[in-house]
Design a protein around this nucleic acid. Structure first.
Lengths: 346, 346
DNA sequence: GTGAAAGCGCTAACAA
DNA sequence: TTGTTAGCGCTTTCAC
């Protein structure tokens, strides 16, 4: 270890003022003579002074740190999401703190309870993680924005994916490309019309609802066999599904997958069985991960602009943080999408 | 916002002891009667008490936070790396803090200088980022472990990828599969034997050296035309390279790419030109990202066990942190690899 | 425009 | 086994 880091006091002594004046000068507050400020800045520079965040936030109650909570880092979707959110947080002069919960509700609860969320470790949280409940957030009383929480009447601000419209557009695209027997690959079980018309709190049922409406509107079948259920959102589950579908000669000519990794897995699984995409069956994904632009075949997808989403989410959060008296109302925003047609639906 | 978070004092008043006793009880320190501790824990639980990390570390000089610094989050290689490192840090009871520098040396320098690295915000840093220099680290005086810094005689502990041996094995694998005219796809410009025999401070030249030795040992050509230079490590650069190679009828029958994303890009670029992998040319990558197991074709690669790497890196860092008097010596570890043969070199 | 006083919540060191 | 003292480095408040 080096010598102790320089403090306000060190600078103050050199300049010949009090620590208070140095603090004001460094933070650019009014009420400091220009010449004094210049001297302070010079000495701070020379001593390589950095404010001690712990002390600063202990007193001020603000850390400038925004927590970004997600299920995992490796799924390309999440890698892109944390990237976009981190950049946006920094663009606002704040520091992003990433945390992952591994899809576990206990882990999420633990993260909310952890010492790092007490006191003033974080000024706020943006979460896209299983088990982060409204109740928990309200209890904590901390500024929070939920991503894709899809609750009908949220008590917490949310920014949502275009689940219904996006899935609808994806299926319509398959139909436009000539598909007449379309399978929906999802973690959500088959749901009948009544179920689907109800509101749901996770995105998959909402996406399924969108897919269904496109099928019905085009006079195409929607029944239990058309919903292919998988147990997770990564490639392996897509591969398994493809193997099952090929082995049972399912006979679909197009598939909408609830995310791109599933879709890439489906394509890979079909390749194992000699089923060619798009020659034999067509496949479209959801999210618009970059890998879909480089796969063989390239992947058609319902693409969401994560930069725009991040901007809205951080904006909402800052509004909460900066509102002194909690005099804001929760908002629910749904972002737009673009249908990207690539080789997998050609 | 809710009512103010409970403090040690609140608990102390309820239990009828001093904050000091509460502090000891909560931290499990000796010298507290079992019955007192029980009472304290009960009240802490009921009040939903969480220690204030800022205050705690302001006083103790330890934050329990380990910084993980990388160039980016989205490249699958980095997504897997931060995942493994985060898990390992948590396994040791510490909190990971992720930071990205975007390959920019200024950004890295800024990150090292930032307020969050002064005082006691981080207990230590593990870095795999361009521009994190030994000099900067030594100047900061903070415990640090560098990943893949490949300096010959490091003043800072490093954990390195098996660059030379891995690249050598990759090329040997291509040779074993019948390749006789092998191209090396790398960001490093062609370097003659003398250049390559010198020590270098980034991994690409070292990998190139390993590739070269395999070629030479097998009596195969190694000259400027065999080194295909790209300007980055992502898929697009691989695609560009493939287009160039196909358009100029380069005539190679096998390629070693310096990472898997380049290799996947190469395969995609060849697909654009009707060049089939592995039928027409064979391709092997480096790192062992999971996407390589799900691509079409699946990707052969020199795979590195990131969990093992993370374990070593965190272990080294903890040794530095826990050594009170800096009485440790920097170490340089090289982790092992496994050659995974998949469809792309069949 | 500058400074003095006070204390954020916690813990190391020592006293009782 | 428990308590007292003191202070980490900073910022808020208010006096000058």
């Amino acid at each position: 270890m080096n010598a102790k880091a320089p403090t306000l006091k060190d600078i103050a002594e050199e300049v010949g003022v009090t620590p208070m004046t140095v603090s004001k000068a460094l933070r650019g507050m009014p009420g400091v003579k220009a010449s004094t400020r210049a001297k302070v800045l010079a000495v701070a520079e020379r001593l390589n002074y950095r404010v001690n965040v712990q002390a600063s936030s202990l007193k001020s109650g603000r850390s400038g740190i925004i927590r970004i909570m997600v299920n995992e880092y490796r799924l390309p979707f999440y890698a892109q999401l944390i990237d976009a959110l981190s950049d946006e947080v920094r663009r606002n002069g704040l520091t992003p703190f990433l945390q992952k919960t591994g899809y576990s509700a206990e882990s999420a609860a633990e993260a909310m309870r952890s010492p790092y969320f007490s006191g003033s470790m974080f000024d706020g949280t943006i979460a896209h993680a299983s088990g982060v409940t409204e109740a928990g957030i309200l209890k904590s009383g901390n500024p929070t924005v939920l991503l894709d929480d899809c609750a009908a009447n949220p008590a917490v601000s949310t920014v949502n994916w275009p689940n219904e419209m996006g899935a609808r557009a994806g299926v319509q695209h398959l139909i436009d490309r000539g598909c007449r027997n379309i399978g929906i690959v999802t973690v959500c079980p088959y749901m009948d019309v009544e179920d689907l018309l109800r509101d749901h709190v996770s995105n998959d049922p909402v996406r399924l609802r969108g897919a269904r409406s496109a099928l019905i509107d085009n006079g195409l079948p929607y029944d239990p066999e058309h919903v292919i259920r998988v147990t997770g959102l990564n490639e392996p589950q897509g591969i398994d599904a493809a193997h099952r579908l090929a082995d049972t000669h399912a006979g679909f000519d197009g598939y909408l997958c609830m995310n791109d990794s599933l879709a890439l897995g489906l394509i890979r699984g079909f390749a194992d069985r000699g089923v060619r995409v798009p020659d034999d069956v067509r496949v479209i994904g959801f999210d618009g991960i970059v890998a879909g632009a480089y796969s063989v075949p390239t992947l058609s997808t319902v693409s969401v602009d994560l930069d725009q989403l991040a901007q809205i989410a951080v904006g909402q959060l800052l509004r909460q943080i900066n509102d002194p008296d909690g005099d804001w109302r929760p908002t629910a925003t749904t972002v737009g999408f673009a249908l990207i047609a690539r080789e997998s639906t050609r």
